[in-house]
Structures are given as C-alpha cells and as structure tokens.
Design a protein around this nucleic acid. Structure first.
Length: 370
DNA sequence: TCTGGGGTCCTATGACTC
DNA sequence: TCTGGAGTCATAGGACCC
C-alpha cells in the first residue's frame, strides 16, 4: 500500500454536517407566510398516514416526524395539515445545495435536507460555515443547523444539538465525556431494537456502553456489530465523506387504507406498482436483474420474495410477470396491508463500485438524493 | 400510539463452484 | 472418487435512516 500515512502525520479532519431545520415545513411556510408561527403538519391525510414533518410550533405539542397522523391530530387538533409537495422540496433543495457546494466543494447528501462536507485543510472553517449559513438563509429563506467535528458521527450529533439555527463544534474526547449520561439512542445507527437489547444487558447510557468489555458486546451482537457499538460509544469514526453514491435499488410500494384479501385485487395493484416503477427506471435508463415483491400482512409480518433474471431489464411486461408469479407462489395467507415491488442489481453497479479510480459517475448519480 | 415510502446496509443460510 | 474448506452468489429477514 503506497498510501500509508501515520495517523499523527495526517491533518486533523474537520467534518461538517449541515441540516436544514424542519425542511419540508419551512418550504411550505415560505409559500404561505400567513402560516408562520402556526402549527403546521406536512402529511397525506389518510387513516394510516404518518407525519412527514411538523413545524416547530406543532412540535411544541409533541408532534414529531414518523408519528401516526391520528395521534398527531389528537395532540394538536388545530394543526393545519398540508399534503407533501416533493417537487417543490426538490427545487428548493437543489438551489440550496448549489450554494453550499459552490463554497465547500463536493458534498455527501443524505436525503433532501442534509449533507456532510469535508473541510479538512480549509482555513477558518467556522467563519466559512457561518457566512455560508447566512448566505443560504438570505437567498433561500431556509435556516440550516451546523455540526462540526473530527468525524461524521460527531458532526451529525452536534448539528442536532443546537436546532433550530444551531452551530455546535466538538472534539472526540469532549463528546465521549459530555454524552456519557445520554441514552445510546443518541448515536446514529443505534435504534430502538438495539437500545432494548442493550437495556436487557443493563446498559442504559453511553457511559455504561463505553465501560462494557468488547467480548460481552460481541457475544450478544456478533463480532462486527459488537465492536462497532463500542467504537461508536467512544465516538471513534474514521468513515470518509462519500461524495458519489450509486443507486442500488428502486421500489414502489403502497399501504392500503383498508386491508386487501382478494388476490385478483392484489394482482391489479401490483401491475400498477410495477408499471410506475418501470416508467421511472426507463426515464433514468436504469435496468436491474433482481425483481422482488414485498407483502405486509395485517399482523405486520413482512415477507419478501425475489427472483434474479438472466438479463438486466426495466421492461414493464417482464417485471410485472415475474412480480405476479412471486405473489401467486406466496399466496398471502392473511389480509394484506402493504404491497410493493422492487428492482435491484443494476447493470452499472460493478463499474461504479470501482470508485474514484474509474470513470466519473453520470450527473444523476451525484444528484441521487435530490 | 399503532405504525408511510423510499432507501441502505448487515447477517444468516443454502446452493454452487473450485 | 470422495470430501472439506473457501469463496461467491442469491435469497430472506431485519435494523436503521430521512
């Protein structure tokens, strides 16, 4: 390896995480200034909908993202409900990241409203970021919170800390100390399931996780995950800011307002889902080999079935036929609440995996999350 | 409280090949 | 000819993220 550089000889990394505050709701409020300071919930209005985003006024009532809409309405009955308009969100997002990218260079996008940037070697990064946040606010009306640290992990946690319009910077040791009393849920990658498993082991804080012998964790979580949990607890993270990501799969799925029992009806829905999926892939000239269906039953069990075909395709007739065969072979034994179809193993995956040494990714790859 | 849609990544397992 | 291990691929399930 010719790239071996001792850690002490490497420049100290400076990673920023930029996160738009209540992005979808903020875009809505730009269009509807009369709703400023009002409780606004962005969500489809259906019996099984969940909240996409809530304005800060609605959050004061306990409404939050991913909460069932029925519950949100109970918590905040006077909230104004707006249907999501992703076309507008994408437009504002593009404009915003163009400004940021113009100053910081290439970004790693995570969805429409957040991104990482590597500012290692940049002079006066704090000043650069402060000016940038102000420029974004002036030109788009969107406020951005910034987290700054030696890794993506710390930058991400910091950007959440000062929301809205926050600006927080922290080193690794400081983070390890400061968050020792917090729940492991604070750490990205540790969700409700891992929190529960840790709790069963008597580990309820990041500090307790830090003090847990690695063997105990690897016993419970497997070698890789266990080691990773411990590294995270100590806020070690050497992952790079990845500025080019390639689409790995694309799917189209629908949860029904009421469960569906009839196979004929399910087949009809699956045809429409496959058609929508293939039309999108045809526009992007993407073809895949693995066709999969997803079925969620009324008791919330989720089943997937997949088949890999010989040649890459985005042909509606072929994808539909295979998806229908998979559905008939499975023959859902209970009422179905969700049906979906997915295409994966795209034809240019291998070439793209070669990374920066290979050809430049097509323009739409960089814009993938947008 | 009762759980969307669109993704990524990881793990386990079995089939297959060398 | 039989066997075992390693590597790879396909499949299924699940956790997690925005």
């Amino acid at each position: 390896m010719g790239t071996d550089v001792r850690p002490e000889d490497r420049p100290k990394r400076v990673i920023a995480h930029l996160d738009c505050d209540a992005f979808y709701a903020s875009v809505e409020l730009l269009r509807r200034p009369d709703l400023r300071d009002k409780a606004v919930i962005v969500a489809h209005d259906g019996p099984r909908s969940v909240v996409t985003t809530a304005s800060y006024a609605a959050r004061r009532y306990g409404v939050g993202s991913a909460m069932p809409l029925s519950r949100a309405k109970r918590l905040c009955p006077h909230a104004i409900l707006l249907p999501p308009d992703f076309e507008s969100y994408r437009r504002v997002s593009r404009a915003l990241w163009e400004i940021v990218g113009g100053r910081l260079g290439r970004l790693q996008h995570l969805g429409l409203d957040e991104a990482y940037a590597d500012l290692t070697g940049v002079e006066k990064p704090v000043r650069v970021l402060r000016e940038l946040v102000e420029q974004v606010r002036a030109e788009t009306g969107i406020t951005v919170s910034v987290g700054l640290g030696p890794s993506r992990l710390i930058a991400k946690i910091c950007s959440d800390l000062g929301k809205p319009a926050g600006f927080v910077a922290m080193g690794r040791e400081e983070a390890a100390q400061r968050f020792a009393g917090h729940s492991p849920k604070l750490l990205p990658g540790i969700g409700p399931k891992s929190v529960e498993r840790l709790r069963e082991m008597g580990i309820e804080t990041i500090g307790q996780l830090q003090a847990t012998p690695e063997e105990r964790l690897t016993e419970r979580f497997g070698a890789r995950h266990g080691r990773d949990l411990l590294r995270r607890a100590h806020f070690h993270d050497s992952s790079e800011v990845e500025t080019s990501r390639v689409l790995k799969s694309r799917s189209n799925e629908r949860t029904f307002d009421e469960d569906v029992t009839s196979l004929t009806q399910l087949e009809e829905i699956l045809r429409r889902l496959a058609q929508g999926l293939c039309e999108g892939l045809q526009r992007r000239e993407k073809r895949g080999r693995t066709i999969a269906i997803k079925v969620r039953l009324d008791d919330w069990t989720t089943v997937t079935r997949a088949r890999t075909v010989d040649a890459h395709t985005n042909d509606t007739a072929l994808v539909t036929d295979v998806a229908l065969e998979l559905l008939r072979a499975y023959a859902p034994p209970r009422p179905v609440r969700l049906l979906g179809v997915r295409l994966a193993s795209f034809e240019d995956e291998e070439g793209a995996k070669a990374g920066s040494g290979g050809r430049a990714p097509p323009p739409d790859q960089l814009a993938l999350p947008l």
